[in-house]
């Protein structure tokens, strides 16, 4: 008989594994309050809230944050449109080459980010396109499509094809059917996909280093601080805030798709 209770060893191994995944993140939270500003001394000699106000008054942090939010918002919007179109085409009909379409959508995250980054950079160079806000968006939207696509395809698969036929049977043309039947049925999946795409773009650094030129998104700003630390406590605070901010869309996406389809982890 298969027993219904886990052995102690398994419980410890599973618990230790989860702890391994979470303790380093918790550590960041503690460091955000340390009074030590020259080194990464542990345990912190004292705790203070001072660095939050220092960070608050740093214009470079705000600029980076604002750029990241704008890039993520626009990339998400583009990815929502492209991903939904792709998912609709792939799930509705069997056509020649649908495997190729899936592959094309997945490729930008299946290949290491550095390859996407360098490809785009050398293409921009070849085409004489100067780096700008839009070159960042171009890269981000490309790898965000897959997250929306995964969520939308899963939902389309669960939405019975006869719903669409029923709508047309009752007098609705293609556009009315989209507005009154398809959209309400895939809305939560799109919202979840959009949130994940936003989180993905907000966090992206590898492709961005190749497509950003002189501009700094928040991850690029952090990378600078990691390579050449200027004010460590500010980095600590920003790191903590970034963790908290990315948790929100993940929790949101989880609750939106709970019990229906899973949040596609491989989207990342």
């Amino acid at each position: 008989m298969h027993s219904d209770r886990a052995s102690l060893g398994l419980k410890i191994a599973a618990g230790a594994g989860l702890a391994f995944m979470h303790l380093p993140l918790l550590l960041i939270f503690i460091y955000a309050f340390t009074t030590e500003d020259k080194s990464y001394q542990w345990p912190p000699p004292g705790l203070t809230l001072k660095w939050f106000s220092v960070t608050w008054s740093r214009p470079d942090v705000w600029e980076a944050l604002s750029l990241s939010v704008r890039v993520a918002a626009i990339s998400t919007a583009i990815a929502l449109v492209l991903g939904t179109l792709c998912a609709a085409a792939v799930s509705r009909t069997k056509f020649f080459g649908r495997e190729a379409v899936s592959l094309m959508v997945i490729l930008p995250i299946a290949l290491p980010g550095i390859i996407t980054g360098i490809s785009l950079r050398s293409a921009f160079n070849l085409a004489d396109i100067p780096f700008s806000f839009w070159t960042i968006v171009l890269g981000h939207a490309t790898f965000c499509v897959v997250v929306v696509y995964n969520n939308a395809v899963a939902r389309f698969r669960r939405t019975s094809g006869s719903l669409i036929e029923a709508s047309m049977d009752l007098g609705a043309d293609s556009f009315q059917t989209f507005r009154h039947v398809i959209l309400p049925n895939i809305a939560t999946a799109l919202l979840a996909g959009g949130m994940l795409a936003f989180a993905l773009s907000f966090d992206e650094v590898i492709v961005t280093t190749f497509t950003a030129g002189q501009q700094q998104t928040l991850p690029i700003w952090m990378l600078e601080e990691l390579v050449r630390p200027r004010q460590r406590p500010v980095t600590n605070v920003v790191a903590m805030v970034v963790v908290l901010v990315t948790f929100l869309p993940i929790l949101g996406a989880y609750y939106l798709t709970r019990g229906t389809d899973t949040v596609a982890g491989q989207g990342k």
Binding site: P24, L25, A199, L223, T246, G265
Partner: peptide, 15 residues
């Protein structure tokens, strides 16, 4: 599992 998966790559490296 999802939260560490999706939390910032750089923050994870930084930690």
């Amino acid at each position: 599992v999802m939260l560490p998966l999706w939390s910032s790559y750089l923050v994870k490296v930084y930690s």
